[in-house]
Amino acid sequence: MSKPKVAIYWSAACGGCDVKVLDTNEKILEVAAAVDLVLWPIALDFKYKDVEAMADREIDLCIINGGVRNSEQEHIVKLLRRKSKVVAALGACAISGGIPALANLFDAQSILDYVYHKTASIDNPQGAVPQPEYDAPEGKLSIPKFFESVFALDQIIDVQYFIPGCPPPPSLIAKALVAFIQGTLPPPPATVAGDGSVCDECPRERKREAKVKKWKRISQFTPPADTKKCLLDEGFLCLGPVTQAGCEALCPKANMPCEGCMGKAKGVIDKGAKIVSYIASLTDANTEEEAKAILKDVIDQVGLFYRFDLPKSLIKGRRKV
């Protein structure tokens, strides 16, 4: 019997998800022995034309990381969807846009203007900007069209499985791959992660009666001497309560408030709205003036609350005018 075929592809991503696939360590050897890898740009030399030559649904599992930022990524993910039986979104960018989707706070033109004309390190005396098509003396060259905004993978194609995190914990990747090989993946659509929120996995203890007298920036952080103290109780904006479990509270364990990379916990409709709600209930203020003083250092709300999920949030991004 032939081995199942697996493809791994990256769109608008940093490569961190691919590195975490490798960080499954010896598990990757078991996976490599059990499946035929047919595309994996970071590690293997397959070309897009190899994918185009495959029959529809020939790939058994296609794992895609990265959001969709340009026309080439849209084309390749649609091609891979057609060629694959099962598609899994790996990591925050594929699931909900991720950090590159903070670009949705700006229009495409202002990004191109800044990157190619205004950054301190740019050296572009001709004022050249990338063109989708260029007539070189030898023939026509083309590059993808830069989209107006970043899309999550399931805003472009159907996705059956979601493996969250930025980057996803290797333990979850291994769990998903082993379940695929053994044929024990849950019925789709399904998220391969932990149960509940990051707080459920966090060893720190929240005092129910604690109220915050001053919300602090992470630059004002001195690790509490007692590492059992909840970071929220200490006035640090930890996103643990609204964030999907599965990372084993890696950041709070290392004295860093959760920034929400695992995505929305089950039951959360809009992360930012939920965060505003718990900030309000924890803030120890009796008057508006008091509240303003306590909240003074809660800055860049959009950049923190929606750091990994702008395309999937209620606000989506900038307001189009």
């Binding site: 930022r69 590159p100 903070l102 700006f106």
Partner: peptide, 19 residues
């Protein structure tokens, strides 16, 4: 050819420096 741009240069603007 580099068929990719994400624009970190732009969207890092407005973020607190420690972030």
């Amino acid at each position: 050819q580099v068929p990719e741009l994400r624009g970190f240069e732009k969207f890092c603007q407005g973020r607190p420096v420690e972030e």
